[in-house]
Design a protein around this nucleic acid. Structure first.
Length: 561
RNA sequence: GCGCCUGUAGCUCAGGGGAUAGAGCAUCGGACUUCUAAUCCGAGUGCCGCAGGUUCGAAUCCUGCCAGGCGCGCCA
């Protein structure tokens, strides 16, 4: 069954009707084809083309040796008496356009009222255990804007995957072993020494950022016995304590960004538990390892990688790939059958080698899916913000939160597809004006809350859908609004399955737009009681759905603005 | 040289086999004694990078080319 046909019962019913009409034509000998294709229905862009449209006659025309319009007419004739169909038209080259009776729309309101903030959920994922890893920024520096984009997108995607029935866990992999942590330790120790002796040399390859000096000051204040240690102990202390501090501050920044992980996985834990040795042994047993040029290699080219990868360097140490393979093996051993990693654009070369590793370990290739996020360019006043890591000049997640705020930042990161290089306009994002789409959406929510609050003040209850006359909701703008509400389940499913969280951002904007239009042209309070009550139900459903999509994106839904 | 991503309205981007290609911003003109004007209504805008191919039908799929971004380490 195709993705598009899973959720909406109206679509399913209609597809079933078309199916039986086709079967009837075949039985009557009017349609001669080997087998019938899957029925797909789309919601036409143009309202004049009905509630749903089918291209089935176009698809079948050739195999059946018929003119598409003739076939369409035959199908339409068989369906026109159906109860749920108000009108049926054959249009264009042979499309069949279905106009349904309004009842299916009013049923949507009923579903929303029942399901509340669960509206749009489904069981597509069937409870499959899925692990989503994202951000995993290096713990030796502050998080940058690509990390921030990954955080916003990963968190939204996690919410979407949960909504469609996956058993989702999120994880942040902390690279707390390896060369860069040693450089970090030396940088921190040098800054510490410089507190006493400003001429103390800073390592040439050290990390220049201000944050290292800040850490050194805290080290001075907090670690009383530090000066009693010998240099090796000091370096080790700088490494473990310093990394812990960095991880802690990353956690806090992400928390402010409304992103929390189920687990922060430490690379060190793999080393301590000899997981790297274990993986090497396993791959050796399976025959994918060989020695050459004084190093140990993984034959990843057996699985389509460009070349084989070094696992143990000729100096006896491991490469990062070794730990990464061990990490992914650990994930799989924990029972996750679907692994998704969100990585930055500089890691695309990594896909082939990790997929090779997963296969070499005996798991299917698609057990691992790697999503590559494209770059973020920051603009301020229309000009690109230049950043230099060397000079310690860069915009961090923290800076971003200070400058534009959490809601705007999250929306801007989520609103573009992963593949798209993102131009993030700081000036626009920080602006609390009509140019800013976040506020446009939130404002719609706030307006509804205001209506509901005033209704409450006037002792007008929001009645249950069964207690109001839905048929009064027949204004064109009301119908448009309800149709948009009806699209949410498909929209959530598509966004989750296609890994396209930006679709939710667009949906939210469209729904808000339809509401604002409705708000201007249709009043709620002050209308005759029956209409007022029906509109209160509608407006309340819009509020629920707006809150639902904002929550999926990790954005707040303010009641007043 | 090889790989990944991108090329659609003045700008930022949707649409990823279907009907006349969309939105926001920008530009111009209207709408507040009535539930929040952070809003609404109206107006113009396109060789969908180029060239072939597949198809009843291509912005969409395939091939080649052009342009931009990013990678291609016994760094992570």
């Amino acid at each position: 069954m195709s993705v598009m046909n899973i959720l909406s019962t109206q679509k399913q019913e209609l597809a079933a009707l078309i199916q039986s009409a086709l079967e009837q034509l075949v039985a009557q000998g009017e349609l001669q084809v080997a087998d019938l294709p899957e029925i797909t229905l789309e919601i036409p862009k143009d309202k004049a083309h009905g509630d749903f449209a089918s291209n089935i006659a176009l698809v079948l025309a050739k195999p059946a040796g018929m003119k598409p319009r003739d076939l369409a007419e035959k199908i339409a004739a068989l369906l026109s008496t159906q109860e749920m169909i108000e009108k049926i038209e054959v249009a264009g080259p042979g499309f069949i356009n279905f106009f349904l009776t309004k009842q299916w729309l009013y049923d949507v309101l009923d579903v929303i009222e029942t399901q509340q903030l669960n509206y749009g959920a489904s069981n597509y994922g069937n409870g499959e255990k899925l692990l989503l890893e994202f951000v995993s920024a290096n713990p030796v520096g502050p998080m940058n804007v690509v990390n921030a984009r990954a955080a916003a997108i990963g968190d939204t995607l996690a919410n979407l995957l949960k909504a469609v029935g996956y058993d989702v866990a999120t994880e942040y992999y902390v690279n707390d072993a390896g060369v860069q942590t040693e450089i970090f330790a030396r940088s921190l120790l040098a800054r510490y020494r410089q507190l006493e002796d400003p001429s103390y040399p800073f390592p040439e390859d050290g990390y220049p950022g201000e944050y290292v000096a800040d850490l050194a000051k805290r080290l001075k204040a907090e670690a009383a016995d530090f000066d009693q240690m010998d240099e090796a102990e000091q370096l080790e202390y700088c490494r473990t304590w310093g990394i812990d501090q960095m991880v802690e501050s990353q956690k806090q920044d992400l928390q402010k960004f409304n992103v929390e992980f189920d687990r922060w996985f430490r690379e060190q834990d793999l080393h301590k538990a000899n997981k790297l040795e274990e993986i090497i042994q396993l791959l050796t047993e399976r025959g994918y390892m060989y020695e050459a040029e004084g190093a140990l290699w993984f034959r990843s080219s057996d699985f389509g990688d460009d070349k084989d990868r070094v696992i143990i360097k000729n100096d006896g140490t491991y490469t990062y790939v070794t730990a990464d393979i061990a990490y992914h093996y650990d994930k799989l051993k924990r029972g996750f059958t679907k692994l998704i990693d969100i990585l930055g654009p500089d890691h695309h070369g990594y896909i082939a080698r990790m997929k090779a590793a997963v296969q070499a370990l005996g798991y299917p290739e698609d057990a691992l899916e790697i999503l590559i996020l494209q770059y973020v360019a920051l603009l301020r006043d229309g000009k690109q913000v230049k950043m230099s890591k060397r000079a310690g000049e860069f915009i961090t997640l923290q800076d971003l939160l200070d400058e534009v705020g959490r809601d705007a930042a999250r929306y801007f990161f989520v609103m573009r597809s992963l593949d798209s290089h993102l131009d993030f306009d700081l000036t626009l994002a920080a602006e609390q004006s009509n140019e800013n789409p976040v506020y446009y959406i939130q404002y719609a929510h706030a307006r509804i809350c205001s209506i509901l609050a005033q209704a409450e003040q006037q002792n007008i209850p929001v009645k249950s859908i069964e207690a109001v006359d839905c048929k009064l909701l027949n204004h064109e703008l009301e119908i448009d609004l309800i149709k948009k509400l009806a699209e949410l389940p498909d929209e959530i499913l598509t966004a989750a399955v296609e890994r396209a969280p930006h679709r939710i951002a667009s949906y939210a904007l469209e729904l808000a737009g339809l509401f604002h239009s409705f708000y201007t042209h249709c009043h709620v309070l002050g209308e005759q009681d029956a209409l007022r009550d029906a509109r209160l139900v509608l407006v309340n459903c819009v509020r629920i759905v707006l809150q639902r999509v904002l929550r999926l994106m990790g954005i707040s839904a303010p009641e007043r603005m």
